[in-house]
Amino acid sequence: MIIRAKAPLRVSFAGGGTDIPPYPQEHGGAVLCSTINKYAYANIIPGGREIEVHSLDYDMTIKYTNSDTALYDGKLDLVKAALRVMEVSDSYATVYLHSDAPPGSGLGSSSSMVVALIGAIKHWLQRPMTSYDIAALAYRVERIELAIAGGMQDQYAAAFGGFNFIEFQGDTVVVNPLRVRSDTINELEYNLLLCYTGGIRLSAHIIDDQVQNYRTGHVDSLEGLHQLKMIAYEMKKALLLGRLDDFGALLHEGWQNKKRLSNRISNSHIDGIYEEALRYGALGGKLLGAGGGGYLLLYCPYNKKHRVAAAIERMGGQITPWNFENRGLQTWESDRGVMSGTIHSMAV
Rank of each mutant, 00 (worst) to 15 (best):
A5W: 05
P8W: 11
R10M: 11
V11F: 09
A14V: 03
G15R: 08
G17S: 03
G17C: 01
P21Q: 11
P22E: 05
P24R: 04
E26Y: 00
A30W: 03
V31A: 08
Y39A: 05
I44A: 06
P46V: 02
E50S: 15
E52N: 07
H54N: 13
L56Y: 05
D59W: 00
M60T: 15
M60A: 14
T61R: 15
T65A: 12
A70K: 05
L71C: 01
D73S: 12
D73T: 13
K75Q: 14
A82P: 06
M86N: 02
M86T: 11
S91A: 13
T94I: 13
D100R: 12
P103M: 12
G104A: 06
S105E: 09
S110Y: 12
S112K: 09
S112F: 10
M113Q: 13
V115E: 10
A116D: 09
I121Q: 12
W124E: 08
Q126N: 15
R127N: 01
M129H: 08
A136T: 14
R140E: 15
A147K: 15
A147P: 00
G150K: 07
A158F: 11
A158Y: 12
G162P: 07
G162I: 08
F165V: 03
G170Y: 10
N176K: 13
N176R: 13
T184F: 14
T184P: 00
E187R: 14
L193R: 09
L194C: 05
L194P: 07
Y196K: 03
Y196G: 06
R201P: 00
I206A: 01
D208P: 00
V211S: 03
T216W: 02
H218K: 11
S221A: 15
S221L: 00
L222F: 05
E223K: 12
E223D: 10
G224A: 02
G224S: 02
L228I: 07
K229A: 07
K229C: 04
M230W: 03
M230T: 13
M235N: 00
A238V: 01
L240E: 14
G242V: 05
F247T: 03
L250Y: 04
H252G: 01
W255G: 06
Q256S: 04
N257L: 00
N257H: 13
R260T: 01
N263G: 04
N267L: 04
D271L: 11
I273Y: 02
E276G: 01
A277R: 09
A277Y: 05
L278A: 09
Y280K: 11
A282D: 11
A282P: 10
L283K: 14
L283F: 12
G284A: 10
G284E: 08
G284T: 09
G285C: 11
K286W: 01
G292D: 02
Y295H: 15
L296V: 10
L297S: 09
Y299H: 10
Y302H: 14
K304Q: 14
K304C: 02
K305P: 03
K305A: 04
K305E: 06
M315I: 03
G317V: 06
Q318C: 00
Q318P: 00
T320W: 06
T320D: 05
T320C: 12
E325T: 03
N326R: 13
L329I: 14
W332P: 10
W332R: 08
M339K: 14
I343A: 10
S345Q: 09
M346H: 07
